[in-house]
Amino acid sequence: MKNMERKASKKTPVIIKYREDYLFMLPYLLVFVVFTVFPVVVAMLFSFTRFDIVQLPSFIGLKNYFRLFIEDSLFPLALKNTLLLAVITGPGGFFLSLLLAWVLNEFSDKLRAVLTMLCYAPTLSGGAYMIWNIIYSGDSYGFLNGILINLGIIYSPIQWLTDSKYMMVSAIIVILWMSFGSGFLSMIAGFKNVDRTQYEAAAVDGIKNRYQELWYITLPSMKPQLMFSAVMSITNSFGMGDIITAIYGFPSSNYALYTLVHMLQDYGNTRFEMGYASAIATVLFLIMVLSNHFIQKLIRKVGN
């Protein structure tokens, strides 16, 4: 049967040979192309135009990009904040999720489900991050200030939400707290998917402790989940704009938490400069694609 298929493949065109596969993919790809690929491509084309939504877009070449890179004085700041947040919260969230998923895997199914839910709670309850408004509250009644003053670490309340010295740190804590999301769940499921006989074989082969077991057995067999989580970490850590706006307001004081997402939402939703907003979105997209490329290369090396 296999031979026959091989023989046939020389003559029949691929579309016939793999017709069942293409047929399987067709429904999803149709929806995906219409509602995801098409809008993204159109948005990228917008970035070469001046487009105010009222009038039709007019082609202006690379002007939006020149404006962004050379003239816009807020762009370097937004870029710096975006990268700083992403570099800390991306890997931070990724490794915290991995550590937690690994530890949770040690427990029986029921305990694991309960503990997973408690840790996933910030993501499960949509607007739960608003609680940080109370924790960070600037008067001495704020949770954090209250505790620190009682412990004698500080003497007067710190303005966590408005003092630009502390805003970056406090935002990073919130984002890390939110980082046990879809990537975390996929890791939990991934640990369950590891072939159990491998552990028994490894014990015979002289794997001494759980750390060796993790590095040599578990992680290499769940590379696909690691890659998925890495992509989720990238999209989350670069796209945190809404949560920052909800807690720190827009614009955040001194623009201390002004990111590329804020910049493009500002131009897209408020000023209706769609062409310029699209250029910012495209730049942000390219940064994320590059970091994804780099991270996927790193993950391929796991366990070697």
Partner: peptide, 29 residues
């Protein structure tokens, strides 16, 4: 099968585009 990698990479990349600027093309569709 031919096209496999292109399709998969496109889908992964699509996860990374900010939705603010795709709202208009989507509304038109």
């Amino acid at each position: 099968f031919p096209g496999r990698n292109v399709i998969f990479q496109t889908i992964v990349l699509a996860l990374m585009f900010n939705a603010t600027v795709t709202a208009i093309p989507n509304f038109l569709t």
